[in-house]
Amino acid sequence: MTELYPWLLPQFQQMLALVDNEQLAHALVLSGPAGIGKASMADALAAALLCKNRQPTGACGQCKSCLLRQAGNHADLLILHTETQHIGVDAIRQLNNFTQGTAQQHGSRVVLIPVAETMTEAAANALLKTLEEPPAGCFIILITNQYPQLSATIRSRCQRWQLTAGSTPDLTDWLNRQSQKSAPAFLLEYCQGAPLKALRLLVDDTAASLEQALTTLEAYFSGELELTSVVKQLDQNPELSGLLGFYIRQRLIRPLAFLRQQAVLTAYQRWCRDATRIIGQNSALALTGLLTELKSLLQHPEAKWKS
């Protein structure tokens, strides 16, 4: 059996029940934030579909089909990899040819499409016919962090499984056990509820630096810390864009009226757009400008609305 993270087990059991009743859709999308375990779920489902001796918990892990899959030699499993940043039409043609073939192990055929949102328009169009008329016993599993970026026609032909990670207290306990560290209260919210991303940030001590940075921002906006000190501490932080976005949305604008929220978000979005083109000392100047503007918006919002 392919081992699953505990928060994925309830949805996986639902999938297995559909498989046993021959009701699982032939085209599925596994969606959710990065770090929630979508690849693990896709692997476990593929293993269960290919297994010749499926158990109530999933693939047996011992039959010939399972052994072939574990060795990376299963002829009825296609994982669509690409050497470019996009999935092109040639890769989809390979997929279509695979689905039209005969199952070598006389069972199901399974296709996994990681990063499915990177399909080009031509590739998505080439996939449509197979999704509309899937060959018997063939399952296509798309995996994406960005479900809205899939074309509407692809979304309409696939059953969506939005993966979730359960309750925050349970996940916090899991993080603490896995890392032997105490997870900061904000971490799961910062990671959009994705435990694997949170675990990575906790293990490499990024979580601790994020916590310090949030404290620094809080001190600046409460008037307890000078701007130059804040910029010195935050500039060049690799998580700066996400950190600022999180602080603004979760801590800074929640108490504000709608117009004030929009003004603050517009300033942040403009900084994000410009930050991709700013390097060196100019990045510190840009951060100084953003923090100054945000503080001004909070103190004198009316002038900004009218400008």
Rank of each mutant, 00 (worst) to 15 (best):
T2H: 11
P6D: 14
E22M: 01
Q23E: 00
A25W: 07
G32H: 06
M41D: 06
M41P: 04
D43R: 08
N53G: 14
P56F: 09
G58E: 06
K64T: 13
L67T: 09
H74D: 07
H74E: 01
D76R: 04
L77C: 00
I79C: 12
T82P: 05
E83M: 12
E83H: 12
T84N: 14
H86F: 14
I87C: 07
I87F: 12
D90M: 11
D90H: 13
I92S: 03
Q94R: 14
T102D: 02
H106V: 05
V110Y: 00
L112Y: 07
L112V: 03
E117D: 15
E117C: 02
T118Y: 01
T118L: 08
T120Q: 04
A123F: 11
N125Q: 10
N125Y: 05
L127A: 12
E132H: 05
I143T: 02
T144V: 08
Y147N: 09
Y147W: 09
S151C: 08
A152L: 14
T153S: 00
R155I: 07
C158Y: 03
G166W: 06
R177S: 14
F186Q: 00
Y190I: 10
L199M: 10
R200H: 15
T206Y: 02
S209Y: 10
L210F: 04
A213K: 09
L217Q: 09
A219W: 01
A219P: 06
Y220V: 00
S222A: 13
V230D: 12
V231R: 12
V231F: 13
N237H: 14
L240Y: 10
S241C: 11
S241Q: 13
R251L: 14
L252V: 02
I253C: 00
F258I: 12
R260T: 15
L265R: 05
A267G: 08
T276S: 14
I278E: 04
I279D: 15
L287S: 10
G289I: 09
L291D: 03
E293V: 07
